[in-house]
Amino acid sequence: MLKFTAEHEWLACEGDVATVGITTHAAEQLGDLVFIELPKVGARLVKGEAAAVVESVKAASDVYAPVSGEVTEVNDAAVADPASVGSDPQGAGWLYRIRLDDASALDGLMDAAAYADFAK
């Protein structure tokens, strides 16, 4: 199940774990990425708080936690190659996985069609 936020993140959910990344639209807006900072495995994230940082040549942008929960895995390959987040943000450029405190937190998020309309 693929969900999207108004902060231009995507979540792919399997059971109570969601993979999180930035959308293609967000990656296009940010431009060439040169640095990624991810949360630590085991970290507690609170919805709406800064969870990761993506930086282009020009600027640093916070990536906010779209849901609350515990980080179970992070994409070390994205840290080693920030450009991969720009070139494949909804695939190889995923950022981290989070175990949701509450699976119903996803209910308020957009589906692909709604997000495509939102990001227009």
């Binding site: 431009g31 060439d32 282009s56």
Partner: peptide, 12 residues
């Protein structure tokens, strides 16, 4: 213009 489609890194 802040950048063109090729992007800042390649422009630089």
């Amino acid at each position: 213009p802040v950048q063109y489609p090729v992007g800042l890194l390649k422009e630089h």
